[in-house]
Structures are given as structure tokens and as C-alpha cells.
Design a binder for these strands. Structure first.
Length: 477
RNA sequence: GGCCCCAUCGUCUAGCGGUUAGGACACCGGCCUCUCACGUCGGUAACACGGGUUCAAUUCCCGUUGGGGUCGCCA
């Protein structure tokens, strides 16, 4: 039977990079095995869930290329895929559990429990408050709000085999009569997830290690419901460099931020896949390679620390490699960033032609747009410090001479330009070192740029000559 | 504190009883060079500790220490 996996985020903000990793592992396995990848929105926390966040999650997933077989927008046979639209289903399952004496109505109020919890903590700050089972054997049913609690076993133990952590055994004494349904009928996490995973036929649940503690109660629920639990595969956590939980205060943590910083989607996936999983010594993967190589056996069990520099290096690697980011894709990704700089209405072919000279240099699309800015901008922006240093009187004549040489080049390509310039340097008894930097500043406005001849070729004969002359003129002005 | 999990260079990791403990990022040198990059050559750098098991432990077992997760009518 083909496996069915899911990613079930709660729409309470941006899509966290750690969440993307669990989504990715699920997606990879579904793709590799020909199984199904289901996206489910767990919006039962009405305080924090927002429609905007759902939008962000969907857009982020699409940008990454983590498309779902069933879920919001695409539908499917097991919908709806948003929990708040499934309330009737949870009610039905809860009713069944109560009828079969596997769960009961609890009329204790939140305030009462809060008070008990506080009292216990006051006596012993480290004690664990467990619901005392006050309503467990209650026979009267007052006309008051109630929650539905599960009847948890008090002795024995529960063992399951995790696909990455192996055999995990937990004593049932660690469990308590946890709440299934709130007084308003909205399910709590464990119940909602189990009911939906059953209803949606999920066969393998992979999620962060922070959920490992939820697995025993969930398995108990499957048993009470007469269902065989799915397989579980927990993933180690992605921590901040200082070992803390990775959050906003450690820098960019959302998919949107990396998209805005000009990262390639495949590079994001590559970095995340390699975090906690390995395939021998291979560091760089295309998405197809990831799908082909992914397995649970090589998933690590220890937490890791996010490394922004390595992430950047992986992105750089992708941008450098035609196989990973084909030129057409490069152009498509780069265009928006050029537009953001005010360089709009550019011809795709023209942009494609300029890419080779910055390909190995640019680490992100934002970086690429910055490096290519001089090619597409009509009025050059010149770095004052660079001008002060290189556009000086001593260089004026040379720039004018170079302009003439450039205008005289016959065939217009970098090698031809280089040949013409070299010939002139010979005649004039000059070295390229004496001319390159002044020319570079005149042509690009900066002291760092692609190779001089590529720059001239990209600008075109007239524009290159004009800028060189302007550079010479800037000296006088 | 209870329950659960983890432990190889600074970081991500390879390793599945016998290796000069390998790779990548980062860092430091050399080369290349019109700048910046790229590339290339080399270098610094790790098996947390203590017991076992074994002819032999980074590898298997136990403990210690350290780190993490979780203890809600959040997810």
C-alpha cells in the first residue's frame, strides 16, 4: 500500500524554517514512494490562527515547490482539510468514545483546575499537576459546560518503534486524563490530529521531536478507537547557534525572509534536507536527487544548530550551477529583484546574456541583481570613494584612449575586445593593471565587478565608450 | 523535579569492532589574477568522562556529566 503522509501546520504566523524541514521530509518520502502528501491546516487555536497566516503558509509551500496532493485549494477525497471545518467529525468520534466509556464529560472549570495547579506549584514548584479524575465516575450531568476527557491507563507501559529513534517505551503512569474536546466543542491537538490522521488514512506521521511526548497518548487514542496506529518518525530539532530554540531573534527564520533575500527554493530545500540527514559525503543535491536519495535510516537523532553561512554557501552553489538553476529559471527568479531596484521592463534575453559573468560570483538573487545593476541602469550610480581614488586627472587620458579603442572594435564580444585592448596596451606601453581599475569605476561605478572585457561587452560599444569618456570628464568636473 | 531523547572538528556530518577518524561550511596560508569572485594546493581542528564486553572499541552495554524536549480547555 502506498504510504500517506501529511504536514499539519497551525496558521499562527509565518512558515518557520524548522516546519519546512518536517514538511520536506514528508514530501520527499511521499514523492519517492509514490505515496500521497496531504496538507492540513490545524487552526483550532482560534486565538492565534489567522487567514493571513494560512495564505502565507500556502504561498510559501508553493514557492518551495512542496506541492500537496490533497489539501486546501486542491481538495481531495478526505476533506475538508481545515480543522475548524471538521468539528462535526470530532464530535462524532468523541461521542463514540464517551458511549464506550473510554472518555467522559468533565465539568471541572478551567478556573478550578488553574487553582489546583497553582496550589500544587506553590507547595512544590517542580511538581507535575495531573488531573485528579474528579469527574471520572460522575453519574450526574449538570446543565453546565463540560470538556471531554480521555480515560488514560494508570499502569503498564507503552512501546512504539520510531523510524528514526527506534524503540521508545513510556510508563503509562506518565499519562493523565487529557482533554479531547474543549467546552466549545473544538478539539485539542492530540485528538484533532488523531481523528484526522485516521479519517485521512495517514500511514506515517513525521514531525519534530518536540511532539515525541504526544505520541503515547495518541497511540492510546488509536487503540481506544480500535484503529492501528500509523508509523512514527520523529525528527531532531533545529536550534539556534547558541543552542536556544531557533526564533526571530536569531535572524531570518521564515521562508518568506529567505525568498526575499533571494535564495533559490531548491537551495533552501537542499540545506534543510542535509540538516539531520545525510547521504555519504554528498552536500549538494537537486530536488530530484533528494527525492531519489532520501531515507529514514540516515536521519540523525541529535539536535543541530542552524548555520547561516553554510546555508548561504549552499545557495551560492546552486546559483553557480546550471544543472541546479537553469538560466531560464535564473532569469525568472532574478527579474523581480531587478524590478525592485527600479530596473523594470527588461528583456529576458538581455538579462540571460548578462548572467554568465556574475554566475560564479553571486550568492543570492539579491546579490546578483546588485552585481548586474550597472548593466541595466541608464544613469550610472558611482561610488564616491571609488571615483575619488580612480577617476583622477592622471587617468583621464587613458580612459579617453580606451574609449577610442573600444569604439574601434570590430566583432563585438569579450575576446575581441580583449584583443583590441591588449594591442593598445602594447602600443602605449601600458599594463592592464594601470587601466583596469579606473576603467572599472568608470564603467560600473565600483571597484569590484565582473571581468573588464565582459563588462564592456555587456554594456555595448556606445554605452561603454560613453561611460569611459564620462569617467574621464568626471575628473575635470 | 517526573517522563522522554541526544552526545565525532567551531558548525552540518561520514563511520554501522580493526581507518593515518573522511567530506562540507567557516577559519588560516600558497597558487591563479584587471578588481571581486571562481578554481586550485595545503593547514589548524573532533570521537565528553568512567566502567565493562571483546584479541580489538569512536563503534556494543551500564553509569556519570553535559545538552535538549515536554509536563495547558496551545500546537
Amino acid at each position: 500500500m502506498k504510504p500517506r503522509l501529511r504536514f499539519a501546520p497551525s496558521p499562527t504566523g509565518y512558515l518557520h524554517i524548522g516546519g519546512v524541514r518536517t514538511a520536506l521530509y514528508n514530501w520527499l518520502w511521499a514523492r519517492k514512494t509514490g505515496g500521497a502528501f496531504v496538507l492540513r491546516i490545524e487552526d483550532t487555536d482560534q486565538e492565534r490562527s489567522t487567514p493571513e497566516s494560512v495564505r502565507v503558509i500556502l504561498d510559501s509551500m508553493k514557492w518551495l515547490g512542496l506541492l500537496w496532493d490533497e489539501g486546501p485549494e486542491v481538495g481531495g477525497a478526505n476533506g475538508p482539510y481545515t480543522q475548524m471545518e471538521r468539528l462535526a467529525i470530532y464530535a462524532e468520534f468523541a461521542r463514540k468514545l464517551v458511549d464506550e466509556r473510554r472518555a467522559y464529560r468533565c465539568y471541572c472549570t478551567k478556573e478550578e483546575l488553574e487553582q489546583q495547579r497553582a496550589a500544587l506549584k506553590a507547595r512544590d514548584p517542580k511538581a507535575t499537576f495531573k488531573y485528579p479524575g474528579t469527574c471520572r465516575n460522575r453519574t450526574t450531568h449538570p446543565d453546565q459546560p463540560f470538556v471531554v476527557r480521555f480515560i488514560a491507563p494508570e499502569s503498564g507501559q507503552l512501546t512504539y518503534t520510531d523510524k528514526v529513534f527506534g524503540e521508545i517505551t513510556t510508563p503509562n503512569s506518565a499519562q493523565q486524563d487529557f482533554v479531547l474536546l474543549r467546552s466549545d466543542g473544538v478539539p485539542l491537538y492530540n485528538f484533532g490530529a488523531v481523528v484526522d490522521d485516521i479519517a485521512m488514512g495517514i500511514t506515517l506521521v513525521s514531525r519534530g521531536r518536540d511532539h515525541m511526548v504526544n505520541t503515547p497518548p495518541q497511540i492510546l487514542l488509536y487503540e481506544a478507537l480500535g484503529r492501528r496506529p500509523p508509523e512514527f518518525a520523529h525528527l531532531p530539532m533545529m536550534l539556534a547557534p547558541n543552542g536556544e530554540k531557533l526564533s526571530k531573534r536569531h535572524g531570518a527564520v521564515s521562508v518568506g525572509e529567505y525568498r526575499d533575500q533571494g535564495y533559490a527554493p531548491a537551495a533552501v530545500l537542499n540545506y534543510l534536507a542535509r540538516f539531520g540527514w545525510s547521504h555519504g559525503d554528498q552536500e549538494v543535491f537537486s530536488i530530484d536527487e533528494l527525492v531519489g536519495a532520501f531515507d529514514w535510516e540516515h536521519c540523525n537523532r541529535s539536535d543541530g544548530k542552524f548555520d547561516a553561512k553554510k546555508f548561504l554557501a549552499i545557495d551560492h552553489e546552486h546559483l553557480k550551477t546550471e544543472r541546479l538553476v537553469p538560466t531560464a529559471e535564473y532569469v525568472r527568479c532574478l527579474l523581480p529583484f531587478l524590478e525592485k531596484r527600479g530596473l523594470s521592463g527588461l528583456d529576458a534575453a538581455r538579462v540571460a546574456a548578462a548572467i554568465p559573468m556574475i554566475r560564479e560570483r553571486a550568492t543570492t538573487f539579491v546579490d546578483a541583481a546588485d552585481r548586474l545593476d550597472f548593466v541595466f541602469r541608464d544613469v550610472l550610480v558611482v561610488d564616491p570613494a571609488a571615483a575619488a581614488k580612480f577617476l583622477v586627472p592622471a587617468n583621464a587620458d587613458r580612459l579617453v584612449e580606451l574609449a577610442k579603442v573600444v569604439e574601434g572594435v570590430e566583432a563585438w564580444d569579450a575576446p575581441a575586445i580583449e584583443a583590441a585592448v591588449e594591442a593598445w596596451l602594447q602600443r602605449a606601453g601600458l599594463s592592464i593593471k594601470e587601466v583596469a581599475q579606473p576603467a572599472r569605476v568608470a564603467l560600473t561605478g565600483r571597484t569590484a565587478s565582473p571581468g573588464l572585457f565582459d563588462v564592456i561587452a555587456a554594456l555595448g560599444r556606445e554605452r561603454a565608450a560613453a561611460r569611459l569618456r564620462a569617467g574621464a570628464g568626471a575628473v575635470v568636473a
